[in-house]
Nucleic acid binder design. Structure first.
Lengths: 241, 241
DNA sequence: GATAGGCTTGATGTATACATGGAGGGCGAT
DNA sequence: ATCGCCCTCCATGTATACATCAAGCCTATC
């Protein structure tokens, strides 16, 4: 449960972000400070702060003469961004392998892997828990890289909801169809850690890249399914056809 | 020559950025709105806008309870960021090779290469012109990738002055010492375009990565030279020893 | 003496009035 | 009728007053 946020700027940020991601504000829509302020019943000042923050997150573009426009994403943007995540996570894995990690970190990785193993051992996978442990894995991978600069850029790329490692994984509707990919993905998890453990940089990098492409396949599957766009997959609601 | 900016927020942005990059504001310094506003003789409003923008550029960090802190960079941040640029430019080169580019774009690349050839053919290289054409080359590489998502992230990484492809190249003081690296770098330029032309994705990627490491060598050389830190290299003034 | 409570202080958050500047439309002249 | 100028309106930029909130300290009480 999210704690109640205090400032109006934060509330405005959350509200606007939700509207963009849900597709209520479609790409190309210009956001006017006064209109948004009236709509949210607050003054222009916190609205500006929220808009600036959304621009930083990449959900808005700054218009030419000031002002903001809702950014629009097409399928190629989604694919490229996921590929980019793969490239960066690949670099994280390579750094981890090249620079070395501690035994404690490897133990942490093993524990995450065991937990996912357990989740996947039953017929009906609990997607929410899988999503949780999957996030843990990807967070750990960033830490294993030991690079603050890399962590920063990766955080930026995965701020786009469709590029997050756990995008769509909380979608129970398609759990059955995604299950095969989940098992493949988890084999990749294991292989990545194995490569890092044995200091195999090139292998770790290439595996992490391919891992992101597994996620890309999920997205392509969901985007091709017209029904999914309407119901389950909130993270794709704002992607232009 | 930069055109005269109109808004106070922009002037504040430029002024603050300059102070950070010149080292006048050292890493870890907290910036208070009122203090900055008084110092620049403007109100808090444009100051806030400027601070938010600098945070977006990565020169400031947002403090916990609001407020901003000047970010500090150590050598490993610099190295990692340049490596990251190499990874992203490598991806740009790979995309270009895999997805194909137009004849017109290749012609543009050839022209840039010819211009740099000419500059390097004389004993005393005009660093400013080299820097210009080098920028042209790297801009073109991004365009060749055909990926807006990639362009965006690369722009972000290269916003940090020490990570820019043309960082330090306008430094006439060390022109002689850097000349050898320049020739190597330009050979890499040629090879990258050759790989793209022949659709050799892996080669293009690996060359572009190595190309960034040539830049990294320049930085390491300059950082190891105490004199350089004091005088010539403005782009390194704010890097923590 | 220790602790709890409240006050002071200093910072950011918010509202709002006013300034500025650009785009679009209307009106006039040719 | 069309071109061009000017005016008006609307959106953002800016200043400033006020609100709020957290931290630290002082004091009073146990």
């Amino acid at each position: 449960m999210a704690e109640a946020v205090k400032t109006r700027a934060e509330r405005a940020l959350i509200s606007l972000r939700q509207r963009i991601l849900s597709g209520a504000l479609s790409g190309g829509t210009r956001l006017f400070e006064v209109a948004v302020a009236e709509d949210l019943a607050i003054s222009r000042t916190p609205v500006r702060a929220a808009l600036a923050q959304l621009a930083e997150e990449g959900l808005l573009d700054r218009a030419k003469g000031g002002g903001f426009v809702v950014r629009s994403f097409d399928i190629s943007d989604v694919e490229d961004t996921i590929e980019l995540r793969g490239v960066l996570e690949g670099t994280a894995a390579r750094f981890a392998a090249e620079r070395g990690v501690t035994e404690a970190q490897l133990a942490e990785a093993d524990e995450i892997i065991r937990n996912i193993d357990r989740l996947l051992s039953v017929a009906r996978v609990e997607m929410e828990k899988y999503s949780h442990w999957n996030s843990r894995f990807h967070d750990l991978l960033v830490r294993l890289s030991g690079s603050a600069a890399l962590a920063r850029e990766l955080a930026r790329v995965t701020a786009l909801p469709f590029a997050s490692p756990s995008a769509f994984l909380d979608d129970e509707t398609h759990a059955g169809q995604l299950l095969g990919n989940l098992r493949i993905a988890h084999e990749q998890h294991k292989a990545i850690i194995d490569a890092i453990r044995h200091r195999e940089g090139a292998r770790a990098e290439s595996l992490a890249r391919e891992h992101a492409r597994t996620a890309r396949r999920n997205v392509q599957f969901l985007l091709s399914d017209a029904a999914a766009r309407r119901e389950g997959s909130a993270a794709l609601a704002f992607v232009r056809a």
